[in-house]
Simulated scan of single mutants.
Amino acid sequence: MDRKRLNISLTLVAAVVGFMLAVQFQTVKKPAERDTRDIWQLREALLKEKELQSNILSEIRSNEDKLSAYESKRKQSKEQALKDTIEELKKEAGLTEITGPGITLQIEPVLEDIKPGQPVSKVISPELLKRLVNELNMDEAKYVAIDGQRIINTTVIRDINKETKIDGHAISSLPIEVKAAVDDMNTAEKLYNRMKVSKAKDEFFMEDLRLNISSPIPNMTVPAYNNFIRIRYMEPIKEGGGS
Rank of each mutant, 00 (worst) to 15 (best):
L6G: 14
E207M: 08
K4L: 15
D113I: 01
D65Y: 11
V182Q: 02
N219Y: 05
N219D: 08
G168R: 01
N186L: 11
K190N: 14
V133W: 03
M220Q: 03
E71R: 10
E112P: 00
I8M: 05
G94Q: 04
H169D: 03
F205N: 06
K29M: 15
I8Y: 06
N137G: 10
R34H: 12
K199Q: 12
K190V: 14
D38I: 04
T164A: 02
K162W: 06
D167L: 06
Y225R: 03
L42Q: 09
L10K: 06
Q53A: 10
K50I: 10
M1I: 10
Q118K: 07
G18D: 06
F205R: 11
S9Q: 13
A14P: 01
A188I: 00
K142F: 04
K142T: 11
I107T: 03
I160N: 05
K142I: 05
P101Q: 02
R232C: 10
D184H: 05
A32W: 12
E88K: 14
S62R: 12
E49F: 03
V120C: 01
E88A: 14
L67D: 08
N227F: 05
D167E: 07
D38Y: 07
Y70D: 08
D183P: 01
N193Q: 14
R158N: 10
L95M: 10
L42M: 11
I39V: 13
K130A: 07
G241H: 09
P116L: 08
D35P: 06
M20G: 11
A145L: 00
A69E: 14
R232F: 04
N161F: 13
R210A: 08
G148K: 04
A69K: 12
M20S: 13
L10N: 09
F204E: 00
I151N: 10
F204G: 00
N227R: 06
D113Y: 06
K48R: 07
D113K: 09
D159L: 12
L42F: 09
K73A: 14
F204C: 00
D183C: 02
E88R: 14
E239F: 12
S172Q: 13
W40P: 00
A32C: 06
L132G: 00
L211E: 01
S9P: 01
Q118A: 07
I8K: 12
D65W: 10
L12H: 06
K30S: 14
E44A: 12
G117A: 08
S243L: 09
N137A: 09
T154W: 03
L129H: 02
E79K: 11
T85P: 03
L12N: 10
K201V: 13
E163C: 08
G102V: 04
D208Y: 04
I157T: 02
R3Y: 15
K50M: 12
Q24C: 15
T164W: 05
N134F: 10
L52V: 06
D84M: 04
R5M: 12
E87V: 11
Y70C: 03
P109C: 05
K165H: 07
Q76L: 15
G241F: 10
D139R: 08
L67S: 07
Q149A: 05
D84E: 15
P119W: 03
K142D: 13
L211S: 01
E203H: 07
F25M: 15
I171N: 00
E163D: 11
D2Y: 04
T27N: 13
D113M: 04
Q118F: 04
Q53R: 07
S243I: 05
T11G: 09
R37T: 13
E33K: 14
A180W: 02
